[in-house]
């Protein structure tokens, strides 16, 4: 999938994450999280897994995490990318 427009998903509520994606020529992942010290690696891994599943190779992915579980972060990333891609809304 290709990120061809800016899109977002999720909320700023506790246990959720807000994900913003935008087109770029390289892949960049920016993570800010209330549990950064404890789970930064896990979050990074979860995001990369979803990007690989969707075949996303380029784009800026910004995660603002409020303590979401990995599967929640992955849902938000997937939604944002689908919204940002050709097939999206």
């Amino acid at each position: 999938m290709e990120i061809i427009r800016k899109a977002w998903a999720g909320t700023g509520e506790s246990s959720d994450a807000y994900v913003l994606v935008s087109p770029a020529n390289t892949l960049e992942i920016e993570i800010s999280s209330v549990v950064y010290n404890q789970y930064a690696k896990a979050i990074d891994k979860a995001v990369r897994e979803t990007l690989a599943d969707l075949g996303v190779e380029k784009g800026t992915i910004t995660i603002n995490d409020k303590g979401a579980l990995d599967c929640v972060i992955q849902a938000r990333v997937e939604t944002a990318i689908k919204r940002a891609s050709e097939a999206g809304v």
């Binding site: 599967c71 929640v72 849902a75 997937e78 939604t79 919204r83």
Partner: peptide, 14 residues
């Protein structure tokens, strides 16, 4: 609708 669908699916999977 899209985000809820994907979220519920991920939770059921997990």
């Amino acid at each position: 609708k899209d985000s809820a669908r994907i979220l519920v699916r991920n939770l059921l999977r997990r």
